[in-house]
Design a protein around this nucleic acid. Structure first.
Lengths: 195, 195
DNA sequence: AGACAAAGAACGAACGTTCGTTCATAATCA
DNA sequence: TGATTATGAACGAACGTTCGTTCTTTGTCT
């Protein structure tokens, strides 16, 4: 599938970056459109030449996030040894969600998705792709005997994502608890999947 | 430890219940104090006779949530077989966080804790208690050989909580994915902890 | 090349609404 | 009567959005 033929207006990108910064600093609802335009260095009215409204900005951000996830999806779907694929994913997705910007934006989008159907749509689509790819890897591993096949692959996929993302979120608070989670999470999951 | 000597004013409870309802329906930031007083059937000014402000209401709610969690903490800390304790916890805590009110309120408090030190304080205290109790159970099980002792108990405790709470959150969206998580989660964790 | 029109990007004042909070005042109770 | 509880008008600030206008660029015609 080719990318959007129309290149994105540079101003639109500036607005997006400003919005992301604001959302990270103050949260979506605590951020006003004036905060965004101030950070972007543009006028109030001009924002509405590029976005239909405030929510449209968050939708766009969620879509970009989805594109970033597709890298994981592709890698999970190749033909390598499922165990290698899984180890790679756990390691790299853990690092991805450990970046404060990703963790914070993720939870911001998640909570907004709880009430906004538009956001929920994008968010759900992104997540379903990831779960499907991960579940596919688990299924393959189950068939070839590398993983236990006593568990529902989709369910395990959900749990793995929850665990990884939860760890990313927890890193945001200063609590020293769970400092060793990063090193424990991989072996723990592999142990659980042992046939 | 005796409960608060001063009984809580009935009006205060009404306000709390109204606030919880509103926060569940619209989210914390989307809820105005006027929504709360309307739902509670009181006047705008009267709310400020019982709470210092809007945030104080959320703090109070978070503290109540903490009291509810102490039930799990106590049960996790008794002297029963660690494996029984863990199984009980996984089952019952999963049910607890699967209740939409608990899942929604939890994420609402969590996200607010990311930016408000006051909320972060209460939230962190609650969570640390739970993690400590769960980790204690895991340690005990490790010593008696029921559980593998290759993992850091606190880290595993964090992961278990993440997984259970993540499952509760996911139930909120209609996505049919992860429907079997509830039945998979217990065996999965026990399998991972097998010595 | 120079004149003119069309397009759209940029602007910021202004809109009506809602926000959380305060305050003077009235009612209620001990 | 003095203390507590209740009221809702009022406050200033902030909200997301709309609007008419200006400025800059691009295309077209002679």
């Amino acid at each position: 599938m080719p990318n959007n033929v129309k290149p994105i207006h540079p101003r639109k990108i500036e607005i997006l970056e400003a919005a992301v910064t604001c959302f990270l600093e103050k949260g979506y609802h605590q951020t006003g459109v004036r905060d965004i335009v101030a950070k972007a260095g543009i006028s109030l009215g001009n924002l509405y030449n590029h976005f239909k409204g405030k929510e449209a900005i968050l939708v766009f951000i969620a879509e970009i996030e989805g594109q970033e996830l597709s890298g994981f999806v592709n890698r999970l779907s190749d033909n390598a040894d499922p165990r290698i694929r899984l180890e790679w994913f756990v390691q790299n997705y853990a690092e991805y969600v450990a970046l404060p910007e990703n963790a914070l934006l993720g939870v911001e989008i998640l909570t907004e998705a709880l009430r906004s159907p538009t956001i929920a749509d994008v968010f759900g689509r992104n997540r379903d792709q990831l779960i499907a790819a991960l579940a596919g890897c688990l299924t393959k591993g189950g068939e070839s005997g590398v993983f236990s096949s006593q568990f529902n692959p989709s369910a395990v996929a959900c749990m793995i994502l929850d665990t990884l993302e939860g760890q990313g979120l927890r890193n945001l608070s200063l609590s020293s608890r769970g400092k060793h989670v990063k090193d424990t999470i991989g072996p723990f999951i592999l142990n659980a999947l042992k046939p």
